[in-house]
């Protein structure tokens, strides 16, 4: 079966500025795609083209088999969209607003009311149903936006920074919600909170200066970090100096960082191409009969990879212009 979302060579130009440049990817049912990138990288612009708000300069998006350019109505029916900042009519109450969206989505009468009740309980909005949206807190406003996006139980869910500006509890709640809905949808969400990607996304795309610069599972991306599978060793100062040379010669070890302080020495061993070296290092220490205070294997961190990749891409784009 074809993917629910297929993006083909999408490009958007505002005057001379290229906001999105030749972006292609696809998202299958059950996948949660995290869209990462620094501000102004083209995340929102891409989402606006997928949902039919902006017309691409070139390329297209196909949603549930409907080309957004050729059959915009059919494609829009399949999409639930939470725009950045969750806009809603401020004078309306969540209840009347959700009813309005449900009606635009073709739901009428008892069907409409049932769906509204369902999404309201899903996002726990019951207590604030009859308060004008303008007087709701940020967290509740976001819930209204989410409820609106899922009111027709869409196959495709697109969310632009769904947790931005929420407190940690609210973030947790929204992420839980996304995870619960994910299995029978194709989901795209943009964020610049990297822990969020690790928490909810099955896949991540990093975009910078309008281009995709990395695409993989969060773990795959994290393993690109120089830190990945590196080993941190703490020991007595004299054993540190003794072991240092031997460790530098150990196969698989690329580089050793050596630090000394009053408490002792610490060695940070970076591995060649991210291969595991923990066993070799501990065996060496054991063979040398050196007493080790602490030994720890480091995982790669997504934010390091993010910083390295986006920095490179931005510098490169700057040079091209």
């Amino acid at each position: 079966m074809a993917s629910l979302i297929e993006i083909r060579k999408l490009r958007k130009q505002f005057g001379a500025f290229v906001a999105v440049d030749d972006v292609s990817f696809s998202v299958d049912r059950g996948e949660v795609l995290g869209f990462l990138g620094p501000n102004g990288a083209g995340k929102s612009t891409t989402m606006k083209m997928i949902t039919g708000f902006l017309t691409p300069t070139a390329g297209t998006a196909v949603v549930s088999g409907h080309d957004i350019g050729k059959e915009p109505m059919k494609a829009k029916e399949k999409i639930g969209y939470l725009p950045e900042g969750a806009p809603a009519y401020p004078e309306m109450t969540p209840q009347s607003f959700l009813r309005f969206v449900a009606e635009v989505r073709g739901l009428r009468g008892a069907d409409r009311d049932r769906r509204v009740d369902e999404v309201v309980s899903r996002v726990s909005l019951e207590s604030h149903l009859y308060v004008p949206i303008e007087s709701l807190s940020k967290g509740y406003k976001r819930r209204v936006g989410l409820a609106q996006a899922i009111i027709h139980d869409p196959e495709v869910l697109v969310m632009d920074e769904p947790t931005d500006g929420l407190d940690p509890n609210q973030k947790f709640h929204v992420r839980n919600l996304i995870q619960k809905m994910a299995p029978n949808k194709a989901t795209i969400l943009s964020t610049h909170i990297l822990e969020e990607v690790e928490a909810v996304c099955t896949r991540a795309i990093i975009i910078a200066a309008g281009r995709i610069i990395a695409d993989g599972t969060p773990d795959e991306l994290a393993s690109r970090s120089a830190n990945h599978n590196s080993v941190l060793l703490r020991l007595k100062r004299e054993s540190g100096t003794q072991l240092r040379e031997k460790l530098e010669k150990l196969p698989g070890v690329k580089r050793v960082e050596f630090k000394e302080d009053d408490a002792g020495a610490s060695l940070h061993l970076f591995s060649e191409r991210g291969r595991p070296i923990l066993k070799d290092v501990s065996r060496l220490a054991f063979d040398q009969r050196v007493e080790v205070d602490e030994i720890r294997e480091e995982r790669g961190k997504l934010d390091e990879v993010f910083r390295e990749l986006t920095h490179e891409a931005t510098v490169k784009a700057g040079r091209e212009n």
């Binding site: 949902t51 039919g52 829009k76 969209y81």
Partner: peptide, 11 residues
């Protein structure tokens, strides 16, 4: 209010 983005992405 930005609601135009909502309106124009509804069917």
């Amino acid at each position: 209010q930005g609601t135009i983005e909502l309106l124009m992405t509804l069917p």
